[in-house]
């Protein structure tokens, strides 16, 4: 498989000696224009990789903040089609920042896997995280996506033991997303010492870069994760800023300000 923007970014960061700041925002939240402004602003705010959430009515692995973000986006008319348009609009001005589309399978299934892969590549998507497609369902999307040249990024969790880990790693690429707690998004802050132990175990098998997420809300927390992982993922804390905004402009400003603060935390950690 040829190199994607994700592979290149992790290689560059490794050379630079720091961890990646992986941001998650919901496509179309609170509406298309403000959301495009957020995505366009994220690289300048320090994001190394952007996960774009695909709104879904029934996000069974997400906590209240991301559920609400998805419902806001849907109420403002977001669809898979408009999410891909958002990404291609972003690509007009940024051809370097990797984009990972993250969501649930049903909207993709309804769109049709083949046309989805074609349109996602055209829009400039680099990788996919599909929460409800475990390895057992690789035939559905993972294998076609890999063939099409996209990364398929998989989640490993505290329940992914040594027996399970090789199954999770097979057919996964780009990076491994370690979910630091058993729970839904935004639930609790992980204990860095527990995470370190888990990462040590996973690294014995996994050759991919490992980004750690769930529960990271501040620059200081992100810095602790940056010390032990190849990347820190922040979603809920960013998405909450949209709900706190007094209007669209304020929401965008808040989100990007928090991203900058967290990015500073991550960039303060030098590894070589």
């Amino acid at each position: 498989m040829s190199e994607t923007r994700i592979d290149r970014r992790f290689a560059a960061l490794k050379a630079e000696g720091r961890a990646a700041f992986v941001t998650y925002v919901m496509a179309g939240d609170p509406n298309y224009d403000a959301s495009l402004e957020v995505v366009k602003g994220l690289p300048a705010a320090g994001a190394d990789i952007i996960e774009v959430g695909l709104p879904f009515t029934d996000p069974m692995a997400d906590g209240p903040a991301i559920q609400q973000a998805g419902l806001r986006a849907l109420a403002a008319g977001a669809t898979l089609r408009s999410t891909l348009k958002l990404i291609s609009d972003f690509r007009k001005t940024d051809d370097d920042t990797p984009i990972v589309l993250m969501g649930y399978y049903n909207p993709i299934y309804a769109y049709g896997v083949d046309s989805f892969l074609e349109d996602a590549l055209k829009a400039g998507v680099d990788g996919l995280i599909v929460v409800d497609l475990p390895s057992e369902e690789d035939e559905e999307l993972c294998i076609p996506a890999l063939k099409a040249g996209l990364n398929f990024i998989r989640l490993a969790t505290p329940t992914t033991d040594d027996h399970r880990l090789p199954t999770v790693l097979a057919n996964s690429s780009g990076f491994l997303y370690y979910v630091s707690i058993a729970g839904t998004t935004g639930a609790a802050a992980p204990k860095p010492s527990d995470v370190a132990v888990a990462l040590e175990r996973i690294r014995k098998t996994a050759k991919l870069p490992i980004a750690v997420g769930f529960g990271i809300r501040t620059g200081a927390q992100a810095a602790e994760i940056a010390r032990i992982a190849d990347g820190a993922v922040v979603g809920t804390a960013l998405v909450e800023q949209i709900a706190l905004g007094t209007d669209d402009q304020d929401a965008v400003k808040r989100l990007l300000a928090l991203a900058t603060e967290i990015s500073d935390g991550i960039k303060s950690v030098r590894k070589n």
Partner: peptide
């Protein structure tokens, strides 16, 4: 049918 769940639940 199938098993369309988050990875956390797969081992269970």
């Amino acid at each position: 049918g199938g098993q369309f769940v988050a990875e956390t639940l797969m081992p269970l």
